[in-house]
């Protein structure tokens, strides 16, 4: 007797032929195989390798995600010299559809900057990052900033192997962006509200509202309001980076596993 669908017929080609003669009277001979496998599994496997590589070298890898134009590159240009004084040694991997303009700008700070030109691809994935890692001297690094392609949708779904995710939102945008793009913001380990020097001209943007949207995503991560034009506003961010880097040395550090 069939053990699979309970149709009462023996599981043999002859019975299938017999059943075909009276299709309405007998159930179709089918089996449902239960499985559970993530469709992001291939990317997640490479991300896990990247994460292990970063951990081996004690490198704090940070995935910076935002819409285009939040000032990710300018922030790094301002931040890297401040971190160099600590001293924390930084490198940057930056993704863009075209040009190496951002890498050139960052290289002027003295940090090693690698441009990934994605063509028409709208996000970085773990393999793109893995492919450029051999170009970096990880043993001589403390922090690797991975500046993702400016996009609030696709980067959210691709783990790169980072330890922490940073979401940026500029005051020129809607302050409710975290509510509109929950997939990206709910996983952020830090939210930065950028270009705060423009706040006097943009009274409709309320940083408190952005933070409330983030909290509605059950996200307890810090939210910092900064301006790269006013380097003193970056002090809390520098403190956060120092703490996160120091935490890497702790055996109990909870490495982000997505």
């Amino acid at each position: 007797m069939c053990n699979e669908c309970g149709c009462g017929m023996s599981y043999a080609p002859t019975s299938r032929t017999a059943r075909a003669a009276t299709p309405a009277a007998t159930p179709s001979h089918e089996t449902v195989v239960a499985v559970r496998e993530s469709l992001f599994g291939a990317n997640e496997a490479v991300a896990a390798q990247n994460r292990a590589t970063f951990r081996t070298h004690g490198v704090l890898a940070l995935n910076l995600m935002s819409s285009p134009g939040t000032g990710k590159t300018y922030l790094l240009e301002t931040l890297i010299p401040l971190l160099a004084r600590i001293p924390l040694r930084c490198a940057v991997v930056v993704g863009d559809l075209e040009t190496d303009n951002d890498a050139q700008r960052i290289a002027r700070t003295g940090a090693h900057a690698i441009q990934i030109t994605t063509g028409q691809a709208c996000h970085l994935d773990a393999t793109m990052v893995a492919d450029v890692l051999p170009q970096l001297d990880l043993a001589a690094l403390d922090i690797l900033f991975i500046e993702n392609v400016g996009n609030l949708v696709c980067p959210a779904s691709f783990d790169l192997g980072e330890a922490r995710r940073i979401a940026l939102l500029s005051v020129c945008e809607g302050d409710d962006k975290p509510a509109k793009y929950p997939t990206l913001f709910h996983k952020a380990d830090l939210m930065l509200i950028t270009k705060a020097d423009l706040l006097p001209y943009l009274p409709q943007f309320e940083p408190a509202r952005s933070e409330a949207c983030l909290r509605a995503l059950a996200n307890h991560s810090p939210c910092l309001t900064i301006s790269s034009m006013q380097p003193e506003t970056l002090a809390p961010l520098v403190d956060w980076l120092v703490r996160e880097h120091a935490a890497l040395k702790q055996p109990a550090h909870a490495w982000k596993a997505v």
Binding site: E30, T31, V33, A34, V35, L39
Partner: peptide, 21 residues
């Protein structure tokens, strides 16, 4: 808002239906 997200953040293959015909 001290909650854990327990479902809804992935895409999974959960079943395959196989047929003899």
């Amino acid at each position: 808002n001290n909650v854990s997200l327990v479902a809804g953040d992935g895409v999974f293959l959960t079943g395959l239906t196989l047929s003899d015909d």
